[in-house]
Design a protein around this nucleic acid. Structure first.
Lengths: 141, 141
DNA sequence: CTTGACTCTAGACTATAGTCTAAGGTTTAA
DNA sequence: TTAAACCTTAGACTATAGTCTAGAGTCAAG
């Protein structure tokens, strides 16, 4: 039933599925964000399908302001040889970071939502006082 | 009553209040993220106190994964000479971006919260199946 | 059985966002 | 009034995260 079980997931296929460049994948491998893949006899990298998920996770974590180093820490929660107690501590710290980010984004959202709802849609900007809030203190400083 | 109304907010004072370097401030000015400040007779930059708020906003937006260019767009919602209709459109697009970021962060939070609550706190990582979820699809792909 | 698309490595190059240095002028506090 | 601590510019340098190039080998279709 399985058509083409033999279709190898080469770096190019993985890259196009994840929407990144092949160089990016090799770069992530070198930086430890992707495990060293198996190779064909001729040296081609062969990936498992869930590498795409991993790449998606990296892409999204990056968009949320995490550095590759921080993302590495998050990913190591999975395959570290460490103890669960370490994972718990790292998870707790990351959780705090994430909650702060969520709160900041919500503050920004509140301001932008008011901006969207209250401004009349024409006339000059300077007449719209809500905009002021954007450069003000957004709650937690 | 006002002690030291004459205390000038020089670049160094603004920098230390906002927790950034003086070079960063000059860099932001050059990139249009800060308005060109007034100068003393001798050429020193003098800032208004709310520059600190603006710098805080920039710092936090950066931590949320916005580039300086995107932050510039957000800040321009305030002092553009454009029409409100533009502001509305930009605000709407930024709002969508922000909502996606919030959702992604919530997905990450869910995983990390389970990680924190369910793992027993000792033993080997590989025994903790929740960790798997971290590199999996987090909802919206 | 060759041609074009793909892969390999190593190293150079780019963009973004600062950070540092040099060489000088200004302010302030002892 | 002078030394420390600030400020000025311009330009060089750094870190992060890729992106591109060269020169070579491999794979799949015609």
């Amino acid at each position: 039933m399985n058509k083409r079980v033999d279709e190898k997931l080469t770096i190019g296929r993985i890259a196009s599925q994840a929407g990144v460049g092949v160089d990016t994948i090799r770069f992530y491998e070198q930086r430890g964000l992707l495990p060293t893949p198996n190779r064909t006899a001729s040296g081609y990298r062969i990936y498992s399908p869930n590498t795409v998920n991993r790449l998606n996770f990296i892409r999204r974590a990056k968009a949320l302001g995490f550095s590759l180093e921080e993302i590495s820490t998050l990913l190591e929660l999975q395959n570290t040889g460490g103890k669960k107690i370490d994972v718990k501590n790292i998870a707790k710290r990351k959780l705090e970071q994430i909650n702060i980010k969520i709160n900041d984004l919500k503050s920004m959202r509140d301001v932008l939502q008011i901006l969207d709802q209250e401004c009349s849609g024409d006339g000059d900007i300077s007449a719209c006082p809500i905009i002021e809030a954007l450069s003000q203190d957004m709650g937690r400083n």
